[in-house]
Design a protein around this nucleic acid. Sequence first.
DNA 1: GTTGAGCGTT
Length: 87
Amino acid sequence: MSKKIYVGNLPWSATDEDVAELFSQHGDVISSRVITDRETGRSRGFGFVEMDESAANAAIEALNGVEMGGRALRVNEAQERKPRNSW
DNA sequence: GTTGAGCGTT
């Protein structure tokens, strides 16, 4: 199974790849996405990462507060946007 | 050529 992770306070220059590689250091990253403003195409400074449940928990604990590009990352379990049958 | 709390597209 997998779990969604919210990651905020990202530097403007951070990309999906940057987040993926950072999180992959603590587990297998299933998918990663940095949210960009669809109107301007610029980064909104936060994103989401999907990982295995245990890996996600480990990554949250390991990466929350870690500095990336001089900014302390906010890592937390994400709220799911589309609540789908998940059991 | 910018900005800074937040929970994203099918």
